[in-house]
Amino acid sequence: MAVLVFLDHESGVIRQASRSAVTAARALGEVHALVTGDAAVADAAARIDGVAKVLRAAGAATAHELAEPLAAVIADLAPAYSHIVAASGASGKNVLPRAAALLDVQPIPDVVSIVDAETFVRPIYAGSALATVKSSDAKKVLTVRASSFDPASAEGGAAPIEQVTVPDGPAVSAFVSIALSKSERPELESARVIVSGGRGMQNEENFKLLNPLADRLGAAIGASRAAVDAGFVPNDYQVGQTGKIVAPDLYIAVGISGAIQHLAGMKDSKVIVAINKDPEAPIFQVADYGLVGDLFEILPQVEAALDTAG
């Protein structure tokens, strides 16, 4: 049986995390991709390496990836599939559990490793433990952590595109508006380098002091929950158990103490740098390179060092 992968997109661009879901799904069978939106989204899905067929659920009902019609589409398509997979982003987490309920299946969220067709590894307790679980359901519904699977190449495929119908149902929800944070920087989930700030940044104004460093490194900017709660930056910057899960080549934590909930979101980064004035801060336990001191003195020094001999 083939595997159905829901690819979510933002402003017509398929998320890189969804291409990671394609990679995960390929380990389970032939990949059929479900997309909504314009024909261009379906065309992009068809070009992804490893996608054998694209199913396009077009039309007003699914235009904003609303959970109610989309879960109904997935439940409709499900009989032909052994597994239904999506990336563990806001969209996948919104839609897949609902589809699983329609199928009387217990979903398996945040899969980081596939043992076999029915056994999966997922973090629990903010990553304090890894649970290996085996599903007894006839069909498996999973979301996968993008940081654990390399994204499938955006080019190389030439899959046929089929239209699928959206089942009729009462329109119980309606899209009103979307406000996307505007940024020229890379997305957190796909950035090679992330500069992240915490409570130690003190306020919204000071948080901007991370910009020059991020500019020099071509980095995305992240934040701890403490910084988000304090209103320094919007929630979509948040890295951690309840925010985004990232694993860049380089993660620079500035003024972040390293609560377990934050570590859950970044401890799989290849290289971790911590800058903090408290030498006992837990962030240093996961940092490859720690620098103890006043971040407001250190940041300009790091920038200067990057500018010289760079």
Binding site: L130, Y289, A305
Partner: peptide
């Protein structure tokens, strides 16, 4: 519907080092 096969500690990160200066970092 799910059977717990095992629950384990995640692999620990190797202890890093403290550097002395921004230039060293």
């Amino acid at each position: 519907r799910l059977t717990i096969v095992s629950v384990t500690e995640p692999p620990a990160r190797q202890q890093g080092i403290k550097v002395e200066s921004a230039a060293d970092l």
